[in-house]
Design a protein around this nucleic acid. Sequence first.
DNA 1: GCGTCATTTGTTCAGGCTAAGCAAGGGGTC
DNA 2: GACCCCTTGCTTAGCCTGAACAAATGACGC
Lengths: 137, 137
Amino acid sequence: MFRLSKGSGYAIAGLVYMASSSASDYTGIDEISRATGISRQYLAKLFRTLASRGIVRSARGRDGGFMLDRDPGSITLLEVVEAIDGPVEAGCVIKDDGCADRSGCLLHYVLKRCSGSVASILASESIGGIGPGFFCK
Amino acid sequence: MFRLSKGSGYAIAGLVYMASSSASDYTGIDEISRATGISRQYLAKLFRTLASRGIVRSARGRDGGFMLDRDPGSITLLEVVEAIDGPVEAGCVIKDDGCADRSGCLLHYVLKRCSGSVASILASESIGGIGPGFFCK
DNA sequence: GCGTCATTTGTTCAGGCTAAGCAAGGGGTC
DNA sequence: GACCCCTTGCTTAGCCTGAACAAATGACGC
């Protein structure tokens, strides 16, 4: 009903690396994969999704790769997570659609508070804000 | 890296129903399944897990069923969620073990804030606190 | 008291679905 | 021709669902 996947973390790690490399040209997926230790194929799949969402730009062929399409400071973690995992929001577990906020579903209310809290934390941090010091040893 | 599954929601719904029925004897899984609209088999599996964690008590045979083993007000949603989904905590995505809090992993820090926030919200609500008004129409 | 029966949980199997990761070939660009 | 993204398909694991069978318990008839 509500999740943060490993894929989201991988995408954030890759984006942070790109932002910190401060290269004005494209960065190959192989380089990002080596630097972060993430599976090359899976990372490529994630970046294709990010490209379709307008977060990164891709170029094929020699000297091709991926490149941030916007200022790192303007890309929030929430945006990245929602691109990969879908909306960060917890609906009612019992009824998929019904159960609007107006109904007195207390469980729905508690879950809304959880997802809302996570969303606001993720929205307050950006790729540029994480910075190159991000990588754990 | 961190999730709240449907199973957790189902378990909470079942427990709330049991607490609200205020019966001093055992409640059958069929009754809970009918009242909540949750798959009987899956609900039974969830309740078996809850029984092994000491949250409910079970009895087989005629007039058997499940029964809260403690005061509904003392069973927090966090306890139920962790019984079903495991610990509500987001570790580092890049390194499974290393990456302790002391290292300067900013992503780790952000994720810790997210999971900590969710855990504290879930810990502040109990099965007894949700109450019978919980069910959405 | 004993055997039978209905009731209800416990166990097992099988299938559909999604996330995560792997591998190979296609095709664009320098 | 070398480089590198794109597409497709496959495998593994875990979640969710459904069905059938086994085991335990209480009620009833004798």
